[in-house]
Amino acid sequence: MSGSAIDLPPSYEALELTHIKLSHHPLGTPAVTPVIIITLNRPEKNNAFTPQMADSLTRAFNLFHIDPRVKAVVLTGTGKMFCAGSDLEIGFGDGGGKAVDFRDIGGRVALAMHRCHKPTIVALQGSAVGVGMTMTLPAAIRICHEKSKYGFVFTRRGLTIESCASYFLPRLVGYSKAMHLITTGGVYPPQSKYFGDLFTEVLPDATAVMPRALELAEDIAENTSPLASSMSRALMWEGANSPEEAHLLESRVFHHMVGQRDYKEGVGSFLEKRKPKFECDPREDCSPNFPWWTEANTLLESRVSKNSKL
């Protein structure tokens, strides 16, 4: 994101975004709620992914990232299918132009979700393939329906994986399983051994997937520190290269956390047997060494306008 100021909406339900719908939880609550629901909303196309959907999702996650009112996000789909992958009737262009100037739209969504301080729970109430799967990989939790089918079908469409899947998928399921999923391009039930623990919960009833995701989101929003959660996920995704380096990094971040008011609130609420009220903002109160890794610049290079007089 750029450093320019962004106006936060008084209500996410009033925010109109193409091909997705934002909802408060409970639905219809006038003020912004700690749990926000994103619903892929192209049921007539099985929620097939479009550039407009990518723009909408990226904007939504960028807003949640800076909004202290939001504590957790639930992503789901309208209808019987979570996402049928990219809308192939729209396609991806003709391959013209320079590769250095191209950014895959699924990758923009994946990075926005990954960089968002607020955890995402994906409620896959139906089947998902292609980018419908890869865009969920940066999420903290994935819950699905046992009778639905899921797959990374790129090689069957003459395409390579995208949405940063080459980074996330092997780390989530292991290289051997990831190689099988990508090489075959097959579609499998969620209990397949090839998925490993990608889906943390597989439910027999499709209608139970969303309520379970909301139950988890409520628990996270009410009982965990957004700052501690964000820093802990970053330690795992952007961790050290050895146990010794991990020890040094974790010690530095832990030392910072002990000085924060969320630590005092967490201990106090536990000893006093009451609900915690965490107030630290992950963007304002993060560890001084955050980010402790070097972030690659994914922005396109600026060019001199042809109309410029040099």
Rank of each mutant, 00 (worst) to 15 (best):
residue 240 A to Y: 07
residue 45 K to L: 14
residue 195 F to H: 04
residue 184 T to I: 00
residue 181 L to Y: 03
residue 299 L to D: 15
residue 32 V to R: 10
residue 240 A to P: 00
residue 247 H to D: 10
residue 15 L to E: 05
residue 96 G to P: 01
residue 171 R to A: 12
residue 35 V to H: 03
residue 9 P to A: 10
residue 232 S to P: 00
residue 175 Y to A: 14
residue 280 C to L: 07
residue 64 F to V: 08
residue 190 P to T: 04
residue 122 V to I: 14
residue 202 V to R: 14
residue 21 K to I: 10
residue 251 S to F: 08
residue 137 L to C: 03
residue 256 H to G: 05
residue 261 R to Q: 11
residue 265 E to I: 02
residue 91 G to W: 11
residue 149 K to I: 13
residue 87 D to R: 10
residue 154 F to I: 02
residue 255 H to I: 02
residue 77 G to T: 07
residue 116 C to T: 06
residue 77 G to S: 04
residue 168 F to D: 11
residue 202 V to I: 15
residue 263 Y to I: 08
residue 11 S to F: 06
residue 13 E to Q: 14
residue 60 A to Y: 07
residue 52 Q to W: 09
residue 97 G to V: 14
residue 128 A to V: 01
residue 273 K to P: 00
residue 209 V to S: 05
residue 50 T to G: 05
residue 153 V to G: 03
residue 77 G to Q: 08
residue 251 S to I: 00
residue 67 D to N: 13
residue 169 L to S: 03
residue 282 P to C: 09
residue 301 E to I: 05
residue 193 K to F: 09
residue 188 Y to N: 09
residue 149 K to Q: 12
residue 158 G to P: 02
residue 108 R to C: 09
residue 267 V to M: 10
residue 97 G to E: 14
residue 165 A to L: 02
residue 203 L to T: 07
residue 109 V to K: 04
residue 65 H to Q: 09
residue 287 S to M: 04
residue 174 G to H: 02
residue 114 H to I: 00
residue 63 L to S: 06
residue 239 G to S: 06
residue 303 R to L: 10
residue 277 K to D: 12
residue 151 G to M: 08
